Computed example of a mutant assay.
Amino acid sequence: MNRRQALLGLVALPAVAQIASAAAAPVVVVNKTPTCGCCGLWVKHLQAAGFAVQVHDLENLSPIKERVGVPFGMGSCHTAEVGGYFIEGHVPAEDIKRLLNEKPAAKGLTVPGMPAGSPGMEVPSGRVDRYDVLLVDKEGKTSVFATHGGDKK
């Protein structure tokens, strides 16, 4: 290998590392209704955070919510799956990354309802209501995984 080949190899390393990193990242499969605007905005939030996203537009999400184990009363407008977990509602990308990094024994994360200011539910004033991201364990019990907005007490 000559000096020129070595230098070209060094220049290419960051691009190769970026491609390898993107290939290793799990794809987020998002199930949503075709007419929901906030779901599309949440998908854009995930893409901006570096996730590859596959979208399935469906009229009825109930069978998916039931299959993945979203507890009754903990649902929202879209259900995603990534890395063996469900992601229900407007969960911030940073919390999904934490979930995938920590790998708790759980079914997934949920943000019940549609809190103002959560990803996909942004408001012009920039206000973010306080909301919790809940971890759903294997038995379907919930605990607070993260808190966002408001004063976070």
Results as ranks from 00 to 15, higher is better:
L46S: 06
F51I: 00
L10T: 08
E94D: 15
E81L: 11
V29Q: 14
N60M: 08
G50K: 01
V29N: 12
I96N: 01
V111T: 12
C77H: 10
T147C: 05
T147G: 06
D151E: 13
A12R: 07
G126W: 10
V82P: 02
G150Y: 12
F51L: 01
K32R: 15
T35W: 15
H78D: 09
E94Q: 15
V82E: 03
P26A: 03
V16Y: 07
T35A: 14
K65L: 07
M74R: 15
K97Q: 14
V11A: 14
T35N: 13
E59Q: 13
A106P: 07
N60F: 11
A93S: 05
P92Q: 04
A17S: 07
G140E: 10
V70E: 05
V128H: 03
A106G: 02
P92S: 03
V91Y: 04
V128Q: 12
G83N: 09
I96M: 12
K44R: 15
E59G: 14
G140T: 11
S21D: 12
K138S: 13
V55Q: 07
P119Q: 10
W42K: 09
A23V: 01
G84F: 06
A49D: 09
T147Y: 03
M121Q: 09
E102M: 10
S143H: 01
V136H: 00
P124L: 08
I19C: 00
S76N: 09
W42A: 08
R3F: 09
A17T: 05
L41P: 00
A17N: 00
D151Y: 01
E88A: 06
A20M: 12
P119L: 08
N2L: 07
E59Y: 13
T79D: 03
R127G: 00
T79Q: 00
V27E: 12
Q5M: 13
